[in-house]
Design a protein around this nucleic acid. Structure first.
Lengths: 247, 247
DNA sequence: GGCCGTCCGTACGACAGCGTACGGCATTCC
DNA sequence: GGAATGCCGTACGCTGTCGTACGGACGGCC
């Protein structure tokens, strides 16, 4: 729910974006970027980029969640990172290439601001604060990947599930997460049955509740206790670098 | 072994660095950076940065190998990425922060060029090609992390060992890799015994040979066949972005 | 030459997670 | 109302990896 500025007619563009990166821009840079942003509605399972394909546009989610996943030739696939209102999908464009490595998939439907890749490249060179913020975000994303690498090796499935749900809740900005066991299994790189068991435990403990494709976080603090430390570590790094509370 | 330019006295600085990033700089930028580089010898197990500590300098390895690893409070630790002559250790400095996330540890002793963090920040802002190359390297490193995240989740220990050995051989630039099973176990995040078994298999197949802390790659192409596809994927991305043959 | 620290081989029980599979229950659509 | 479909619960045997542990071998050092 966006609160329009009191003086402005309700259908005018808001003074500040719901995307945390865009919200931190100084007024002049924000004004300059606004004409290049297009509000779009992203549908669940929509593909925004495929491996080895050119990235046409980058996306600043408002309440959508986009996941970056890698598939191997044997058919296995795992999420390696996710992007919500705290960030931007399409970092390779910023870093100087237009090819995606993984697959960008809309995980949870919602709104986002879209910007042409060419515009991003041009404006990042002209607007110093925009550029600085995006590079800081790249560093935060890198931390997220590094932690996930360790997490996938060291931590059991139930704690990783708790972590994933927390992240998703934060990115989404509300407690109702529309998602199925099947999808979570793909994200975590485990069997669906493993998710069912772990989620069942969490539900019996009253931490979450769910039914047919809708998970509800009931006790956030206990979910955090059930998750591995990777959640806290990455979150604190985002706070430190970008000063955004992602939850 | 560096070949000095024929006309120059043998003890003068070489015309081009053995570090692939530095080697790709145009002459003017290289000349400008050279005074700020200090050749250092890195000893095995030396720590170049610790979690949450300020990064004082970045390193461009010549034939040393530096690994970035993450430790969790339970004591587990895994390598999340490694840096050799193809890159630079200390990306956070480029991206706008001076705090390290993981631990930078010298994996294999060797030479490197050292540059003060402050100098890197300043010169990256002034030398466009230097800046461009470093950002491309950041993207390549990101790909490496993403692939490792998936790899740790999807692939069995023996294939990951083969991959790790290949990477290390490439970064080092020769077939003799001075390393113990214990250290490899730490890097892969597995038991020492698991490494012993997997390495024993490779030795029996004549792919590698080893004795007391020295692994020798005998048949490179068969090692590549034994490794998971992650090796090839990351290598091709490095080639594509930076045009360096890392092996 | 003998000692000792480091490094490697091997073994055994335990267990998390896998692959597969079947059945029940909610929706939705006819 | 009935059928089809998607989603979730549960089960069973299996495999990779773990934790631990002991013994042997190499190499440096006194």
């Amino acid at each position: 729910m966006t609160l329009a500025a009191p003086e402005a007619p309700p259908d005018e563009a808001p003074l500040q974006s719901r995307n945390h990166l865009l919200a931190r821009l100084p007024a002049d840079e924000w004004e300059r970027l606004r004409p290049h942003l297009t509000g779009v509605r992203l549908a669940a399972r929509q593909r925004l980029a495929d491996p080895a394909q050119a990235i046409e546009a980058v996306y600043f989610p408002l309440d959508a969640v986009i996941s970056l996943s890698t598939t191997d030739t044997a058919g296995g696939s795992v999420e390696v990172g996710s992007v919500g209102c705290e960030g931007m999908a399409g970092l390779p464009v910023l870093l100087g290439t237009d090819r995606s490595t993984g697959r960008l998939l809309v995980q949870i439907a919602g709104d986002a601001e879209r910007m042409d890749a060419a515009v991003l490249r041009r404006e990042a060179g002209r607007l110093p604060e925009f550029n600085r913020l995006l590079l800081l975000y790249a560093q935060a994303f890198l931390t997220q990947l590094a932690q996930s690498t360790a997490c996938n090796r060291l931590h059991p499935a139930d704690r990783r599930l708790a972590r994933w749900l927390l992240i998703c809740r934060d990115r989404l900005g509300r407690d109702d997460v529309p998602i199925t066991h099947e999808t979570m299994a793909h994200m975590l790189g485990v069997r669906r049955a493993t998710v069912t068991e772990a989620a069942g435990d969490l539900q019996r403990q009253g931490v979450i509740r769910y039914r047919r494709g809708l998970v509800t976080v009931v006790r956030r603090e206990r979910l955090e206790a059930a998750s591995c430390e990777c959640y806290r570590i990455v979150r604190e790094e985002f706070d430190r670098l970008l000063g955004v509370r992602v939850g």
